[in-house]
């Protein structure tokens, strides 16, 4: 399954400035994993030390946040476009 991943401007430093990356994958998990395998420097920005997707990384498939579908196990049809969209968070101290 050929999937196109749209890379936000903040992360293009890790994809040779490419705004879109084509990967193979049947699910979101496989596609994102393939992206991280192809561009290892992007991995720490997508996954935390335990390997879980960082809380601020949102993934949109066909324009919809996968949190409202099957999450990272969402099945991707061939030719689907997947967008990485950051949520922005922070705050003072504890």
């Amino acid at each position: 399954m050929s999937i196109t991943i749209q890379i936000p401007s903040a992360l293009r430093a890790f994809t040779d400035r490419k705004p879109e990356i084509a990967v193979e994958g049947k699910t979101v998990r496989e596609a994102i994993g393939a992206l991280a395998d192809a561009y290892p420097d992007i991995r720490p920005h997508l996954f935390d030390a335990s390997g879980a997707l960082r809380a601020f990384v949102n993934i949109y498939v066909a324009g919809k946040n996968i949190r409202h579908a099957d999450g990272i196990e969402t099945v991707l049809p061939d030719g689907e476009i997947l967008a990485l969209v950051p949520a922005i968070a922070g705050g003072a101290g504890q």
Partner: peptide
Amino acid sequence: DPSEYDREHALPFY
């Protein structure tokens, strides 16, 4: 000053 929580949730470039 940015907190550790800020750092954990930030992205480069911005």
